[in-house]
Write a protein that binds this DNA or RNA. Structure first.
Lengths: 137, 137
DNA sequence: ATATAAATGCAATGGAAGTGCATTGTTTTA
DNA sequence: TAAAACAATGCACTTCCATTGCATTTATAT
């Protein structure tokens, strides 16, 4: 519990009750979380608070946003050393079309890609869609 | 002109006036097109028609949908041999954060990616964000 | 020419993102 | 400690895009 507080403080985010709960929730889930998921879990809290909590977490480098092609923004906790703002160290994401869950495949780094003349890469996003291990067995 | 009609017929899509116009519009543009773009171009036509035209084009393999991370669906004509439904032959997309345009980099194929045990890939989507050649010069 | 089916137009809905402002709670400092 | 300053939360509302149901028009087939 105290550990989460420290983590938040290290990232310059005030460890409020709500934020600790959301962080804990995301840490327990292994999959990327949508705002709706959090809404359905914390029904007493206001949508805006949850929304802004995610935004704050993202700005402060606590979570990274994932665009898995469903047009619903999802978020996952950054692992230690998850340089999600640098284009050198991007991992890929897997979206299961059966259970609709998205997971970070942190072990899989993106290969370097040579762009045509004049193009400057700042960020990259690779999503593989298919059937996840839970649904394929 | 007749060429477009033939293309549509080959894909089992009736070459109506509207569809030919939209196809022509997309062929002239080198960038991926959003529904809004088409709306602003063909103001006399109904939004729904344009929307359904894109859907039809997508289903029949005339265009492929691109998710560039802006949460706005964009579309681009499939090139001959654009096996966008197969995960072997996927090209990548580049989204410029300055001019907000998205282009297909068809020459750049995705490297093969080994997924963990149990994961079955069906589709993939790689978007690089940054500054495009027009904006960087 | 008529029946049938497809394409289009209109109206309305839904879902998610985002914003302005008032209120509450928590630091800071005088 | 009390007051001022600031951050976090809650409420209401707006916007934007995707999507659907149904009526109408247009094209195809018998």
């Amino acid at each position: 519990m105290k550990e989460i507080e420290k983590t938040l403080e290290n990232k310059n985010v005030r460890p409020t009750a709500m934020r600790i709960l959301i962080y804990k929730y995301m840490a327990e889930k292994e999959v990327a979380i949508a705002l709706t998921d959090i809404e359905n879990t914390f029904t007493k809290a206001d949508r805006t608070t949850l929304y802004r909590t995610l935004k704050t977490f993202e700005e402060k480098g606590i979570v990274h946003q994932i665009d898995d092609g469903t047009n619903i923004s999802k978020y996952a906790l950054c692992e230690p050393g998850c340089n999600c703002e640098l284009d050198q160290d991007l991992h890929l994401h897997f979206h299961c079309s059966n259970c609709d869950e998205t997971v970070c495949l942190t072990a899989h780094k993106l290969p370097h890609i040579n762009l045509p003349e004049g193009y400057i890469a700042e960020d990259a996003n690779l999503v593989i869609k298919g059937i996840c291990d839970k649904c394929s067995s």
